[in-house]
Design a protein around this nucleic acid. Structure first.
Lengths: 149, 149
DNA sequence: CTGACTGCAAAATCTTTGCAAAGAC
DNA sequence: GTCTTTGCAAAGATTTTGCAGTCAG
């Protein structure tokens, strides 16, 4: 994983290349997605930013516009599962998958080379340029299995 | 894959078990998802139903309510991505995973034994009692790659 | 300076809800 | 008959847009 500053430079260069300006708001969205692991709706981000940067401001429309911009450049990925709305995550990170316990909500991240490799093969087979993948295995974790026999 | 009538019986029993009524509208949504391979927004379904059953009617709110109902019972699955809104598919068929184009919203289903088997192994490794799993590969499909160089 | 970006308010969508009438059992 | 379900219209949410003022380059 590259450092924040390196990634920020990449972002700045990309903006320059497209005659777009580097603004406080754009950095805020970029940084907040970088700093926080997870998937966020535009509103989630608005709240996170208020908490983590009380001195700065950004409006909801700007968050939407910035996320679209970042998504076009593959700096963020969007996906939405279950709940309403689209969710965004920082896209310049290693892929990872999840095991989710439906009883206690525990979340285990894992990374499996066999699956990673197989996913690439599948994407290739369908001529897909893979930008992200999510795999969620839901079930009941060992602790909860012991609790409820 | 079971026959329509068998599946319909399952659906009826499920409704009865929950003191819910079997109505023309509920069957319409169920049947339309069964008859049409693919992933549909509530509005898509409304249009499909108008085309395929011009004599029957169903309102948009009822489609939303019925889809939520069907989803709770795992009779349909929902997915949402790229384009706006959630999409629903008939859920009582073989397990499969998805390739999703984030630009045009195209969705390709695939099934891969290597991945299925590996998922079971991973669940076992973490002592998880797997109840479900979903895998989505997001990316850019061949058509969209050609469009944006 | 100049053109792009932001925030506001308002519009366009998309989804849910309240309620009277109709329908399943 | 009773209690759910439906359709309508209206309310809520979510996302996008127009425009004047602000700001980066």
């Amino acid at each position: 994983m590259m450092t924040y500053l390196t990634l920020l430079e990449t972002f700045k260069k990309l903006l320059k290349k497209n005659a777009l300006k580097f603004t406080q708001q754009r950095e805020l969205v970029f940084k907040t997605l970088y700093d926080n692991e997870g998937h966020f709706t535009p509103e989630d981000l608005s709240i996170l930013i208020k908490e983590q940067h009380p001195d700065l401001t950004i409006s909801i429309p700007t968050i939407y516009r910035t996320l679209s911009l970042l998504e076009e450049s593959n700096i963020v990925n969007s996906l939405s599962f279950g709940a309403k709305g689209k969710k965004y995550e920082f896209g310049l990170k290693e892929h990872h998958d999840h095991l989710i316990c439906t009883q206690c909500g525990k979340l285990i991240e894992f990374q499996d080379d066999i699956i990673e490799k197989r996913q690439e093969e599948i994407a290739r087979k369908f001529n897909f340029k893979m930008t992200d993948h999510t795999m969620n295995i839901t079930g009941i974790c060992d602790v909860c299995q012991a609790k409820t026999p």
